[in-house]
Structure formats: structure tokens, C-alpha cells
């Protein structure tokens, strides 16, 4: 059973203090919702958890080991879905997805299955330049499904998704948690996940 946690996290973005003394703890099978108004530091928190940024002070650990000690190992266990969709218009949908799944190594869902699970199974051969914003979002989310990563970090995953797809996503996250995974999700909307922790950020901003 893995434990992912952070203590006393301060972060300065640009020249503004975004987070001060934030803390969280998460165990295998658990999910954490990040809440707070715009600019409260939800995205920053996810980027810190991914290791893209380092906190000014404080520490984020996996099973007691600082994640910045071995970034490569941390990368191997996480899937990060950010605001930008990272979809190449010149490649087909399937090419886009398989590139990232091969790069992440085996272990996750099959690419076509994952696309089908998010309701875009019929688009696999279409060049990605023809996709709508919602469809690109789903291609982006497919990467988490195919990565086989233990820790999902999802930044506003339901943006541009319709209600049905959001529900499908919720059940996919639940399945991931049941199989012993973890998820950290920043969201305005209610995802309807059973038993989750909540971290509310930025009381002052």
C-alpha cells in the first residue's frame, strides 16, 4: 500500500505566493478533490505533485521518499492530464494515443479500448485536426487510461465534456481506484465519486 503525501508546501508562481503551508495525504485506492476559486493554486498543486515544479519549501513524498530524489521513478508511476491537450493535429487519433502509451511502457488499457471507453472509438483513424475541443479533451484523457500509471493527476478533466462523458469518466476513475490506483482531480463540477478527500485551497485570494 503506497502513500502519497505532502507537508508545509509553499509555492511562489511568478512573483505571487500561490500556496502556503498546504498539506495532503493519499493512500492506494483513494482520491483527492482539489477545490478553490480560480487562481487558488489548484493547477499549481497538481504540477507540484507531478514534479514539474518544486515547492519553495515543504516536501512531497511517495512512501516517505521525496519525489525529487528520483524524478524518473516518479514519472513512471504518474499520468498527468493538464489544461493543454497535447494533441498533434497532423497525426491520427490512434497515432496520438499510441505514441504516449508506448512511451509510458506497457501496463494500461489498450488504446482502442480506451478510446471506446470515452466514446470516441469511431474516430481512431481521423486526423486529429478535425476534432472538436471536447473530443481533443477525451483523446488527452485516454493517455491516463493507457499509461497504466498508479497515480492520476487530472486538471479540470470535465472541461468541454458533456454530461454522459463526464459520467463515463467518473466510472473509469472509480475502476482505477478499485484496482488500487490513486487520483487527484481539480474540479469545479461535482464528479460524484464515492469516498473522496477534499483539499480546499486559497482562502485568501
Amino acid at each position: 500500500m503506497a502513500v502519497f503525501s505532502g507537508r508545509h508546501i509553499d509555492c511562489i508562481r511568478g512573483e505571487r505566493q500561490v500556496l502556503s503551508a498546504a498539506a495532503f495525504s493519499l493512500e492506494s485506492g483513494g482520491a483527492l478533490m482539489l477545490r478553490g476559486i480560480n487562481g487558488a493554486g489548484k493547477s499549481t498543486m497538481l504540477r507540484l505533485m507531478a514534479g514539474l515544479m518544486r515547492p519553495v519549501s515543504g516536501v512531497i513524498t511517495w512512501d516517505g521518499v521525496d519525489i525529487s530524489d528520483d524524478p524518473q521513478e516518479h514519472n513512471a508511476r504518474l499520468a498527468y492530464v493538464g489544461h493543454a491537450d497535447a494533441v498533434k493535429p497532423a497525426l491520427s487519433v490512434l497515432e496520438n494515443v499510441t505514441f504516449w502509451s508506448k512511451l509510458a511502457g506497457a501496463g494500461g488499457m489498450d488504446a482502442s479500448d480506451a478510446l471506446a471507453a470515452l466514446g470516441i472509438g469511431h474516430l481512431t483513424d481521423l486526423p486529429a485536426r478535425y476534432l472538436s475541443a471536447g473530443q481533443r479533451r477525451r483523446v488527452n484523457l485516454t493517455r491516463a487510461l493507457t499509461s497504466g500509471a498508479e497515480l492520476w493527476l487530472l486538471d479540470e478533466p470535465t472541461t468541454a465534456l458533456d454530461a454522459a462523458t463526464a459520467e463515463a469518466l467518473t466510472s473509469l476513475i472509480e475502476r482505477h481506484l478499485k484496482s488500487g490506483g490513486m487520483a487527484v482531480v481539480s474540479t469545479h463540477a461535482e464528479l460524484g465519486l464515492a469516498e473522496t478527500g477534499t483539499l480546499t485551497l486559497g482562502g485568501t485570494a
Binding site: 504518474l78 489544461h83 497535447a86 498533434k88 512511451l103 509510458a104
Partner: peptide, 18 residues
């Protein structure tokens, strides 16, 4: 530039590959 603008670069940095 392309990877930087569309977010792929972040994911490449976060991939298990060096």
C-alpha cells in the same frame, strides 16, 4: 515550439524516458 505550445513538452518531461 510546437510541443511547448500544445502541452506535449510537459508530458515529455514527465514521461519515464530520459
Amino acid at each position: 515550439m510546437g510541443d511547448y505550445e500544445d502541452g506535449s513538452l510537459e508530458l515529455l518531461v514527465l514521461s519515464p524516458v530520459a
